[in-house]
Design a protein around this nucleic acid. Structure first.
Lengths: 306, 306
DNA sequence: ACTCACTATCCTAAAAATGGATAGCTTTTA
DNA sequence: TAAAAGCTATCCATTTTTAGGATAGTGAGT
């Protein structure tokens, strides 16, 4: 058991010893260490006891080193430098860092936020690499298990996974996305209109999609979900020329509508739901990591300057 | 100034940290460290503060390591091993040690004691090398200046060179050495006979040779020193066929007399002086050095077993 | 709901470190 | 030769730190 020897000696004394050996002078050592002379003298006493060796030997002209002290001096310098290196906060240099950053999130959300981040980061940290990991039903366990550094999600952790941190990226209103030849495409949509038309719904996890149902219920209404999709990719294909309505966060809807025969309409006034929030999640284990701190900053810069 | 960072953290905590990181369990760590659980818990608290990082993160199944902790764990093992190596008493292995041992002493004394030592030591430590250094007028400053590891001397340090240690090797009576055709060679020598014959004296340092003078003075006598030599080598040559008497330690006299036309006679009864003592001297700086401790033991073995 | 396992905190007692003053020693200076 | 100066080690009272026992609080498993 290693501790046997290590715990016999006060390691803090090594710092004092190093200075003492190089100064060969208690008072000067005390000055360099910002300690009082008696304190250093007694530290020397403890060192002598610990090493069972006088270490510094009085001579007419001052102190000489014992043979043990000579040995120690030659080793201590490197040793203390090592200790310093280990305990010193790890320096992060974007220019040379080559960490592989793993991120996850729903395809659409990743497509919405990550490209700009990667572009910016790669400009500042050319050796940093990225990996977008396909997300499981629930991305929080992935953070928990250290499979990814970041997760992008609009959800909240269900259980008390308290080791997670998050930062809100953007609030986004929910809008209706429908075919441009939909019956409701050009008229003003009432709450009843909305409730009575068939709906499409993207639900990857099977949860978290119930907010509209709650809003409708508050008005004594309910809707019919005719199509349930596990991803955003084919939403447009299902929507064109159909009677479906998808209710989606605004920017996602815009993306999907782009170049397609689709229209975006606001939700009927009375049904205004709380805006959807997207969060960047990370695990406590990286909360103080300078690389990750820097990345989070970059993320925020990207989000709020574009 | 290095101390800046090193003195900010209690280095002893690193030992606790290492165990904590490998156990990921406060109570078990406490057990391994022979500390109470609260003590380790508080140590962890201090570590968290020092590193500004949670280090160990609670999860459902136990603790996980923070990224900093992972880094630390990979470094700590080697670091603590290094510390241990440095603070651990230097192991000395005669079989492999190749230290160059420097010794000094008067030629005669060296010839008397060192050959047997060297022989014995070389049998046990074949790689150890020796150098007999020509001694200055005074050998003590040579010890002081770390020019030799050992000095063989019958003298005592004159000033308060308190950093020296010594070990008495042998007490030796002083005898008279004279030509076998000397007038006093075969008669019983009285104190007056002794005082009235011309004397030879070996005095390398110019001091320490006054003991006979004191003994004579105590009896109201004084002697005439006709020849003063700076070494023992040519004593025999001066003595043969001369009227001189040398007063020398017994074994030295025997050496010198060997194969020469010389005789050894005891000192006249009333003049019995205190026996001469020879000492092995070494400097405080090597007092605790395992190599030198071993050598001193070997020396004593040689002296007292032959 | 209850038990079990574990960590963090509260409290008090014990231990350690600190700084000022100073004794004791040696060298240097007058 | 005596006085002064420089330095370390020790004494003392005080402050700071650390320790262990008891226990509250938390979450997991039954």
């Amino acid at each position: 058991m290693r501790s046997a020897k290590l715990r016999d000696i006060d390691l803090n004394l090594l710092v004092v010893l190093e200075v003492l050996l190089s100064e060969r002078h208690v008072s000067r050592a005390a000055e360099r260490l910002n300690m009082s002379q008696p304190a250093v003298s007694r530290a020397l006493g403890r060192l002598r006891e610990s090493f069972n060796d006088p270490l510094l030997i009085r001579t007419a002209t001052g102190f000489t080193l014992s043979s043990r002290a000579v040995l120690l001096q030659s080793e201590l310098d490197g040793l203390l430098r090592d200790i310093e290196r280990v305990i010193e906060p790890p320096q992060f240099d974007p220019a040379t860092d080559d960490t592989l950053i793993r991120i996850t999130g729903l395809d659409m959300e990743v497509g919405l936020y990550f490209p700009a981040l990667v572009k910016r980061v790669r400009a500042l940290a050319p050796n940093m690499r990225f990996e977008v990991v396909r997300q499981e039903l629930d991305s929080f366990p992935m953070l928990e298990r250290d499979e990814v550094h970041f997760s992008l999600s609009g959800l909240a952790p269900m259980s008390a996974e308290h080791s997670l941190h998050r930062r809100a990226l953007e609030e986004m209103n929910v809008v209706c996305l429908l075919a441009d030849n939909h019956a409701l495409a050009h008229a003003k949509m009432s709450a009843e209109d909305y409730a009575n038309t068939p709906h499409g719904l993207v639900s990857i996890t099977g949860r978290g999609a119930g907010s509209m149902e709650q809003v409708l219920a508050a008005h004594g209404l309910k809707r019919d979900v005719a199509l349930r999709l596990a991803g955003f990719t084919s939403v447009a294909d299902f929507l064109e020329d159909s009677d479906l309505v998808f209710t989606l966060p605004k920017r996602l809807a815009e993306r999907i509508a782009e170049g397609r025969r689709l229209l975006i309409r606001p939700l009927p006034e009375p049904l205004q739901a709380a805006p959807v929030k997207f969060y960047l999640y990370w695990h406590e284990r990286y909360h103080h990591d300078p690389r990750m701190i820097w990345l989070r900053e970059q993320f925020m810069e990207v989000i709020f300057t574009t």
